[in-house]
Design a protein around this nucleic acid. Sequence first.
RNA 1: GGAGCCGUAGUUCAGCUCGGCCCAGAACGCCUGCCUGUCACGCAGGAGGUCGCGGGUUCGAAUCCCGUCGGCUCCGCCA
Length: 600
Amino acid sequence: MTDQLRDFKRDYYCGDLTENNIGEEVRLLGWVDTVRDHGGVLFINLRDREGIVQVVFDPSKISQDLYNKAKKLKPEYVIGVKGTVNRRPVGTENPKMKTGNIEVAADYLLILNTSEVLPFQIEDNIKVSEEIRLKYRYLDLRRPSMQRNIILRHEVYQAVREFLVGNGFIEVETPMLTKSTPEGARDFLVPSRLEKGKFYALPQSPQLFKQILMVAGFERYFQIVKCFRDEDLRADRQPEFTQIDLEMSFVTEEDVMSLSEALIQHVYKKVLGIDVKIPFRRMTYEEAINRYGTDKPDLRYGLELIDITDLASEVEFKVFNDVAKSGGLVKGINVKGGAKFSRKEIDDLTEYAKKFGAKGMAWIKLENGEATSPILKFFTQEQKQRLFEKMQAEDGDLLVFIADKKEITHRVLGFLRKHLAEKLNLIDKNKLEFLWVVDFPLLEWDEEENRLVALHHPFTSPKDEDIEKLDEALENPQLALSFKSKAYDMVLNGEEIGGGSIRIHTPYIQQKIFKLLNISEEEAKEKFGFLIEALSYGAPPHGGLAFGLDRILAIMTGSESIRDVIAFPKTQKGICPLTGAPDYVSEKQLKELSIKIEEE
RNA sequence: GGAGCCGUAGUUCAGCUCGGCCCAGAACGCCUGCCUGUCACGCAGGAGGUCGCGGGUUCGAAUCCCGUCGGCUCCGCCA
């Protein structure tokens, strides 16, 4: 039988007790962390949210009943203890514990609940599969490191609110049951009971609502909000995730960026005490792709891409030559110190490159004053000289090259660069390299759908100079591919942690963009009619941004995956091992919704 | 849709290459006893396993083959 709590109240959290409490009688509540039974004196570590303190049951000083009761204690029993805070006897202090100089001599014990034997121990640095951790998430979350992550998350919410409210932002909730939109990610659908055959969609983001709030005249909106995308999962992608969403009226790109970086600076200072320097570096999309092969470069290390297409067009090596002359791109990376790689390691790099679409990878090893390579025989002495100069090659380096269509060369080298940095341990984990990537293309060509699609989203404003060319582009879609948008991404250590844009705020430009995207007038009206209509009633110029809160937290806490900063995440198959969701529902429920399950 | 790694006591793993000495072993946890200052307490003893699941090969399968399920990482996908 367990005891009732009745009027037993806690005086302190375990971790808050200090030497200043010595002599005080205190009541504590918490979980039995560990038990050390010496046959005589019995020690337990009592744990609550704020920490751990040692509690002593000394049979020579307490009643037989109390001692016998204490003997029953096991890990994770929930107890209340009354006792006196004492200084520990000289020589028995534990410098590893925050409360290691004191202990509580118990004279009263409540056993409020017992615990089954645990599937894993409640401590950090345990090796347990994530599956088990997620199934018993309530135990996993008792571990100090997980408690820290979730509490840090809470502190970030507060810091965000503090900063944004202080800057005139108004927090508004937007609907979770909303309308499916054709562009973008796959929607999660919710069947409507009252409107048979119709479906709500869970929002991929509050994009349209926040724009409408600008039309409604709120000027500055924010929300910490769940978003839903029914796409495949990754370490940094969950089907439901949290955005810090904001939108402002009468602003330029620069206004949104400077406010956003100030927000990040505030959060880092407030939560981690870290000074982040602003303004962040700005880099155009074009520069990012050319130098790093990606639109979210990790600037914590070098390994930049070097263009040797000109030289490649002259050499006899057919692979280089053909690519260079047919409008492709030949680029290389100088892997400093890479000459120590074995032939096997270089072959592995080639295999890695092939995974991302490369047909092969050329390489030159510079070791002991000699150059080893399968391709150098195609180079004249003078060409070699120029190549080494361009690559800034020295003894001990490994030069790797990819020759392919522009997109593939960049893509492959972008992945290779990251892979090499990890392999060579070039990444300083303590560094924070923020940057803004700006001047994104407005549109890109979708091979599958055979039409132009928005790179960001279809409400993103083109640059002013391109707005003037919209009519021309409707005649000649090729021209549209050169358009730049007023979009910007915040990148931290090679991860996109936020992105946004200045939006289109007039109905006629929005309609032209839909036309460019080959969205018919009927479809545009059906899907986005309310937006176009809203824009026609005095919509102010506006723009905003959304941060991926989970990703920011993963970086702040040094977590490998965003699952470690989400209280109840899902597995890669979108399953919640704790609750067993998703699951079948009753025939009755389906019938009410007029839904029939088709057997495979 | 595709690729890779993994799946063996409650947990983390070893055993698998080359089938039999394995009706499977270690550590931690658990149980019992002893132990009056420990804090990774100690000491002695003990319990605990559908080797993910199904099928096949074989005299014999944790081990080889096929299929399947699950977890993780990645590609595609994710405005």
